[in-house]
Design a binder for these strands. Structure first.
Lengths: 138, 138
DNA sequence: AATCAATACGTTATAGCATAACACTGCTGC
DNA sequence: GCAGCAGTGTTATGCTATAACGTATTGATT
């Protein structure tokens, strides 16, 4: 499995450390998880991590998973995605699969058009079990 | 605007108090908001509220909004909805609109079928501005 | 070079959200 | 009765996130 991750050259030291940590993690990490992993690099306070995360999320290099209060690196190297991204979170192994669906996005636009709601941001998170974990449990 | 809310007869006192509070709220409430509103009724600890919320959510009488860490009463009196419910949250007035979309649900099933993922629960939360707030800002 | 604005940084303190653990109550069914 | 279960009340604690302060660095402008 190849790394699809991206590491822009213009990140600050803290941003680079945080994104590096997320890139190597097999599952989402909380800000405090990240902090603990980076204490050896000199980070001491939650805010150092949160500030880096804010920038990374803003740039689309990382995503926040609302239902976990945790963060993952963006799985798409070209992260030009402006639209709706869905996350499938396995309760077994913790792995997260990221995908986009144009039809769902279209439905959402249609609903927004009909109600006059202006969509700014959408989070879609699916909890369940991935194929690997289902098979292991069988 | 009619109350679509429901208040089952078999709730415990705490559950009834919490659901009553949610039913009358114009916008989502955090557990601590609810606690503060119910101190006059004798509630003192967060756990009293959280336990009631757990049951209410389990029964589909209330929903948790992950992106707000807050709760709303279910808008559908018959809340038989097992499937995907989407919430549109207005950043202006805080109001939440709850709706279901069969097509989106179908897309999700299709994705699940294709990847072997077993969906247990889905949260879909849309942030933006409602028609009323957009008009007010114009 | 001196200045200014913008951005990032580091630190301490605090706010806000959620649960662990324990003891007790009240009901239901045997 | 009494065992089992769901609900309750309380204290303590842990996890998540931000406020408020000052400093440092960078880059553009004069």
């Amino acid at each position: 499995m190849a790394h699809d991750h991206v590491m822009p050259a213009d990140l600050t030291r803290n941003q680079e450390l945080v994104l590096g940590t997320l890139n190597h993690a097999p599952a989402p990490l909380s800000a405090y998880d990240i902090l603990d992993l980076l204490r050896s690099e000199g980070l001491r306070a939650p805010l150092q991590v949160y500030r880096a995360l804010d920038k990374l999320v803003e740039r689309g290099l990382a995503h926040r998973l609302e239902s976990l209060n945790a963060f993952v690196a963006c799985a798409d190297a070209h992260c030009h995605r402006k639209g709706l991204i869905a996350f499938a979170i396995c309760e077994g192994c913790g792995k997260v699969d990221e995908f986009a669906d144009a039809v769902t996005e279209e439905r959402l636009s249609a609903w927004a058009g009909a109600t006059g709601f202006k969509v700014e941001r959408t989070t879609m998170e699916i909890r369940g079990k991935c194929a690997v974990c289902l098979k292991a449990a069988a």
